[in-house]
Computed example of a mutant assay.
Amino acid sequence: MTAPHYPGSPPSGPGADGWRLFRGDGQSRQVTFPEAPPWRRFTSAPSGSEPSKPLPYLIGPAEADVVNAALLLRRPLLVTGHPGTGKSSLAHAVAHELSLGRVLSWPVNSRSTLQDALYRYDAIGRLRESNLRREQACEEPPHGQGPDIGSYVRLGPLGTALVPSERPRVLLVDELDKGDVDLPNDLLAVFEDGEFEIPELARLPEEQDRVEVLTADPEARVPVVRGRVRCSEFPVVVITSNGEREFPPAFLRRCVRLEIAEPDGNRLRDIVRAHLEDADLADVDELLDTFLDRRASGELATDQLLNAVFLRKGGVDLSPGGLLEAVLHRLGGTV
């Protein structure tokens, strides 16, 4: 019996192992890579073009109402939930549905600082450029004719989100709970005031009161006057957290909180249909039941179910004890 083939999935080919590109036998061969799963395709859009349509994102009416409350209040949306429940994808869904352009992303880690998110000033690079010009000219350049300082100032994702614009930008602050314990408090003033200062530009003489600086958008510059950036529309800020630690009450008071629960069986079926709309879902129920059973005893992410369905539709044997264990492995606890 020929294994089923889903368009865009690994080809079944002759025999039961046509999907095996790598044989592990030490022999070199030319293989044709099949099309990747829809959620693992990477395409580069031309500079300045509209972002590509994101994958379908399904959320319940109650959760959508919380998102709307944050939009109306111009408050950051703090999204919590288990890994793989779609916290980060929510920012891209909002940007797509409201036509707000490219999402600005700030992935937080233990070394992240507010300064990095607002802007960076490459003083060393500017000094090197100034010295190079001096050596080539064999004399000191006239006052005010050194390297353009704007070429050495780049706004970070948060700084770019606060640039004045007719429509708000979407800023994803991903996994804030992985940052320094003081980082949430550091963000309070910026979130409250909607502005920040770049001291290196504020100290310039009056004839240099307007400087064009780089941004987090590719090949984009914006003017900064007297070193101050102040938003005209507060950005749509989506902050994600895996719940690894609690945030200060002062920070929580300024956020609208959304807890994304793990999707139930019906929601999971809808998600599979949305992502693999051309697939025959006749045998999805078996994988779905297995997924729900395993999730009951340990963390599993929704994309793991999508991976399993995609492989099954490509003719891959996902019998228990084999590849199924590698695809539907627990995310928490001992492996």
Results as ranks from 00 to 15, higher is better:
223 P>S: 07
223 P>E: 03
226 R>A: 14
227 G>N: 04
227 G>A: 04
227 G>V: 02
228 R>A: 11
228 R>Y: 11
229 V>K: 06
229 V>T: 04
231 C>V: 10
232 S>V: 06
232 S>A: 12
233 E>R: 09
233 E>H: 10
233 E>V: 07
234 F>K: 08
236 V>N: 00
236 V>E: 00
237 V>F: 09
237 V>Y: 07
238 V>T: 07
239 I>T: 03
240 T>M: 06
240 T>Q: 01
240 T>P: 01
240 T>E: 01
241 S>T: 04
242 N>W: 07
242 N>M: 08
242 N>Q: 04
242 N>P: 02
244 E>D: 06
245 R>A: 01
245 R>K: 06
245 R>P: 00
246 E>V: 04
246 E>S: 11
247 F>S: 02
247 F>H: 07
248 P>E: 09
248 P>N: 09
249 P>F: 15
250 A>R: 08
250 A>D: 09
252 L>G: 06
253 R>A: 06
253 R>I: 05
254 R>D: 05
255 C>W: 07
255 C>I: 08
257 R>M: 13
258 L>P: 00
258 L>C: 00
258 L>F: 01
260 I>Q: 02
260 I>K: 04
261 A>S: 11
262 E>K: 15
263 P>A: 08
265 G>I: 10
265 G>A: 13
268 L>H: 08
268 L>W: 13
268 L>F: 12
269 R>H: 11
269 R>Y: 10
269 R>P: 00
270 D>G: 10
271 I>D: 06
272 V>S: 00
272 V>T: 04
272 V>Y: 02
273 R>C: 02
274 A>S: 01
274 A>K: 02
275 H>D: 02
276 L>F: 07
277 E>L: 09
277 E>N: 11
278 D>L: 10
280 D>I: 05
280 D>F: 10
281 L>H: 12
281 L>F: 13
282 A>E: 11
282 A>S: 13
282 A>I: 09
282 A>T: 13
284 V>E: 07
284 V>H: 09
285 D>V: 07
285 D>Y: 15
288 L>P: 02
288 L>Y: 09
289 D>A: 12
289 D>F: 14
290 T>I: 11
290 T>P: 12
290 T>Y: 15
290 T>K: 15
291 F>G: 00
291 F>V: 00
292 L>K: 01
292 L>T: 02
293 D>C: 15
293 D>E: 15
293 D>T: 14
293 D>H: 15
294 R>W: 10
294 R>C: 04
294 R>L: 06
295 R>V: 04
295 R>I: 06
295 R>Q: 12
296 A>I: 08
297 S>V: 11
298 G>H: 15
298 G>Q: 10
298 G>F: 09
298 G>M: 08
299 E>Q: 14
299 E>H: 14
299 E>N: 14
300 L>A: 05
300 L>S: 00
301 A>M: 06
301 A>C: 05
302 T>Y: 02
302 T>Q: 05
302 T>P: 01
302 T>E: 03
303 D>W: 14
305 L>M: 04
306 L>D: 02
307 N>P: 13
307 N>S: 15
308 A>W: 03
309 V>M: 02
309 V>D: 01
310 F>K: 03
310 F>Y: 14
310 F>P: 01
312 R>I: 06
313 K>V: 05
314 G>W: 03
314 G>V: 03
314 G>N: 03
314 G>Y: 02
